[in-house]
Design a protein around this nucleic acid. Structure first.
Length: 842
DNA sequence: CGGATCGAC
DNA sequence: CTATGTCGATCCG
């Protein structure tokens, strides 16, 4: 999607300000000037509920800023000095590890949806048009942008700006098809490229370039296959943005004069020779620029659409670059430190991915507008923002970003939401909720996901948003399961608001907390167990898995127990299960059917009897959720507990189930306790912190050791994309905890540097603890040269193949989170003064 | 864990 | 009339 920010409406104190984009209207051309645009938007906006809400949010933000400024005013120069030292240490480290070896490309289709529509309907070419609806636009063509019509703008306002605007409804299938074509081309430059959306992708073309350098010319030659689209290229004059030595000559590449293009290319490409048939071929050179030119050329040949690209040593920079010569242009930052610095120097922070409206405004209040400012204020920022935030800022201001493009891991949540005209009728709200659950259940089914927490999102007519979540003990996935939870949440919200009714404009349902593969099997087996007779396709009972939350007993025993119980099931009465269906019944009901009472009464109109095949209990007041939980317990052989309830937190603690709670917290404790203990009590004491400030090398040691302790113990210490550049590791994913603790891992103490023959991590930790306490750190000091050398110091741990560097962002974060009393982090925490809206929906 | 917020597309 | 939908991350309590 095309830059939302170009046309964003940003309320600023008392007025909406419209920001002109890069390619905006110049005097004398068609369209509107900034003043007019702002006025029209204002007029259309003023007084609306939406506007009121924007003002409110703005006020909150201002308060937040005010608090921040107050904190700032209380800082002593001493504190700043200290912070400066610490920040600079990290900066040094980052600088030392700067990786310029990769060539990363960010490709971005120009005004993608709009371009596709224009291609397919030539009538749209010369008129201002946008893709979307009267209520919201996805993107607009460049024609329309001259009138201030932008993505993320409501259609009706766009119409006011530009009455002749044509609004075309979105057609995702079409865009997907085009996107596929584009991706096939991209894959040839980097088979592991990373699509970010239909119109955007990252590539690492380092390897491609290495091969390409020795490619014969014919491998870099391409036909002009199709009729070139004789579209007026709305591109800007390249000279305007020039002034930078890197500016590429390509923007005219696709002008409608092919002959010019060939010559242009011949000029650029050293390899081009006279033997090239006139105007039928283009030969691209071997440089990065040429490769990307070629890529864009091929995209246009294939799709008749243009793309822009950025080439840089890391993802963050590449992304910014791709915006620089848009549309139909590209820009490169060569792989030199100085080039990066030059580029970063005057770069407005808002251009940087991850810096949005809010962050921009907060930083602006501190006088930070450009990346240079960002760097200069680094000490201050480290005191006013959270660790992750300021470290991120530091990365940005140094022009450092991720150099590994990695596919996203598994999905973490799935949701659906809908906006509508006001609904205040309770029944309709429940119906809607059910429908959302139904849609969501379908989507979940497609990916075979089940999750444990259900979140309900509500937005009232005043645009106030509220989300409420509930985590249940057995994962849900079907419409009925989700709805049974969602409706409870909805019920409490309705009750909370009563006697007034909720006046909703949006409702959404989300499921998260997905089961991992192992657990899923387990849960599945239970479901199959449950619904066996009903659906006729029971899921085979797999062996019990060790990661299941209810696993307490050792494998073999459990196995046999499981089998026992399966036998039990097979013998057990079928009719008991035939109707797990108070639910399936509900599913059959036409959604229009009145269901008004249902929520008010108990869970469902008539409840089926649930009969547990394990303990032979039969309770009529169970619902599916309770029943599943019960079986889960019975399976693990734990003593039978009371009923459980799916009750929103507001009423009762959901986990009135102490048994389960215990397991959960035990898991966590086992994993993390010893380490936290260690870093809290041993490392973060005063003396060590003194060292931190006195001596860079020593503090590195301390940091390393801390990280070492955290590593492999923190269940969440997964090295994700963001940190990759920092920790500079192989791609190997972090192993699950269980594996970490397995016996074949090698324990090398970072203090005494001796391999430890210990049974498990806990024992190892004790050793390190002792080592530390014995003052061996003094020894380290003597060996500082060695120690300070990452490859020497950072031994393999736990067989993950992953080394430790002293600046793994995530690890640091975790550590600091666990050790906040640490004087180092005396920094005032950011305080997003969250004024909960008490009177929500009143 | 739950809730709010931010940011991206 | 008429201001999206979906997702991940982060922070705080």
């Amino acid at each position: 999607m095309d830059n939302v920010e170009e046309g964003e409406i940003t309320p600023s104190n008392d007025a909406f300000q419209f920001r002109m984009g890069l390619n905006d209207n110049k005097a004398g051309m068609e369209g509107l000037d900034k003043e007019k645009i702002n006025k029209i938007i204002m007029d259309a906006t003023k007084g609306s509920k939406f506007y009121e809400n924007e003002l409110k949010k703005d006020k909150q933000l201002n308060q937040r800023i005010e608090k921040m400024m107050q904190q700032k005013s209380q800082l002593t120069s001493q504190q700043i000095k200290k912070a400066q030292l610490q920040v600079d240490r990290l900066a040094l480290e980052l600088e030392r590890n700067r990786d310029l070896s990769r060539v990363i490309v960010h490709v971005d289709m120009d005004a993608f949806y709009a371009a596709v529509e224009m291609r397919d309907n030539p009538e749209l070419k010369d008129t201002p048009m946008a893709v979307g609806s009267m209520s919201m636009l996805s993107t607009s063509n460049y024609h329309a942008r001259r009138y201030g019509v932008r993505a993320a703008m409501p259609g009706f306002i766009a119409k006011k700006l530009c009455p002749s605007l044509v609004i075309v409804p979105v057609n995702f299938d079409k865009y997907r098809a085009v996107s596929k074509q584009v991706r096939e081309i991209l894959a040839q430059y980097d088979p592991n490229f990373l699509p970010m959306s239909l119109d955007e992708a990252y590539l690492d073309i380092t390897d491609h370039l290495k091969e390409r350098i020795s490619w014969p010319e014919d491998k870099r030659s391409f036909n002009f296959e199709t009729k070139m689209k004789d579209e007026k290229n709305p591109s800007q004059d390249p000279a305007v943005d020039g002034g930078t030595k890197e500016l590429c000559t390509s923007p005219i590449l696709f002008e409608d004069s092919p002959s010019l293009e060939v010559e242009q290319n011949a000029h650029v490409s050293a390899a081009t020779s006279a033997k090239q048939p006139l105007k039928k071929f283009v030969v691209f050179g071997t440089s990065a620029e040429e490769a990307v030119n070629e890529m864009r050329f091929r995209i246009e040949q294939e799709t008749t659409l243009t793309a822009s690209a950025g080439i840089a040593p890391n993802m963050m920079l590449a992304k910014v670059c791709s915006d620089k010569n848009k549309p139909n242009g590209q820009y490169r930052i060569v792989s030199e430190r100085q080039a990066v610095k030059d580029f970063i120097k005057d770069l407005p922070i808002r251009k940087v991915p991850g810096i949005g409206k809010v962050t921009e405004k907060m930083l602006k209040a501190l006088g930070v507008m450009t990346c240079t400012d960002l760097y200069q204020q680094r000490a201050l920022l480290s005191l006013l923002f959270s660790e992750t935030s300021w470290q991120n800022f530091l990365h940005i201001s140094l022009g450092i970003g991720s150099t590994h493009i990695e596919r996203d891991g598994e999905r973490k949540s799935m949701s659906t939401e809908r906006t509508f005209s006001e609904i205040s009728c309770t029944k309709e709200q429940y119906d809607l909720c059910r429908e959302l659950c139904k849609d969501l259940a379908q989507d979940l089914l497609k990916e075979g996901l089940k999750g444990k927490t259900v979140t309900l999102k509500l937005k009232n007519v005043k645009f106030e948003v509220r989300t409420r979540a509930l985590t249940v003990t057995s994962a849900v996935s079907t419409e009925e399961e989700i709805f049974s939870v969602a409706k409870e949440i909805l019920k409490t919200e309705i009750d909370l608001a009563s006697p007034e009714s909720l006046r909703l404009r949006l409702m959404g349902v989300r499921v998260s907390g997905f089961l991992n593969e192992e657990t899923k099997k387990h849960q599945k087996s239970i479901v199959g167990f449950l619904q066996n007779e009903k659906s006729g396709n029971a899921v085979p009972l797999g062996p019990p898995d060790r990661t299941s939350p209810s696993t307490q007993t050792p494998g073999p025993q459990r196995q046999s127990f499981f089998n026992q119980k399966r036998a039990a099931r097979e013998q057990m009465g079928r009719e008991t299960f035939t109707d797990s269906s108070g639910f399936s019944k509900g599913a059959e009901i036409d959604s229009a059917e009145p269901r008004t009472e249902m929520p008010q009464t108990e869970v469902l109109p008539q409840k089926p009897d649930y009969f547990c095949p394990i303990c032979s209990q039969n309770k009529s007041d169970w619902d599916l959720e309770s029943f599943n939980k019960h079986i889960d317990r019975c399976l693990t052989g734990s003593p039978l507990a009371n009923d459980f309830d799916v009750r929103p937190k507001a009423e009762v603690n959901i986990n009135n189930d102490d048994w389960e709670k215990e397991i959960n917290s035990n898991e966590i404790r086992n994993a993390a306790f010893s380490i936290q203990n260690l870093s809290n009590q041993t490392l973060d004491t005063e003396p060590i912190n003194d060292i931190v400030y006195k001596n860079t090398i020593e503090s590195n040691i301390v940091t390393n050791i801390r990280n070492f302790h955290t590593f492999g113990v923190d269940p969440d210490s997964v090295c994700t994309e963001k940190e990759v550049d920092v920790c500079n590791t192989e791609k190997e994913p972090a192993k699950p905890n269980s594996e970490m603790a397995s016996s074949d891992q090698i324990f090398i103490c970072p203090v005494c540097n001796v391999k430890q023959d210990v049974p498990d991590l806990a024992a190892f930790n004790r050793h390190v603890d002792i080592c530390l306490n014995e003052g061996i750190i003094e020894k380290l000091r003597e060996e500082r040269v060695n120690i300070n050398h990452p490859t020497h110091n950072l031994q393999h741990t736990g067989g993950t193949g992953r080394g430790l560097t002293s600046t793994n962002a995530k690890l640091r974060t975790k550590r600091s989170a666990a050790t906040n009393q640490n004087p180092v982090s005396k920094k005032s925490k950011p305080n997003p003064s969250k004024n909960t809206i008490d009177r929500f929906f009143k």
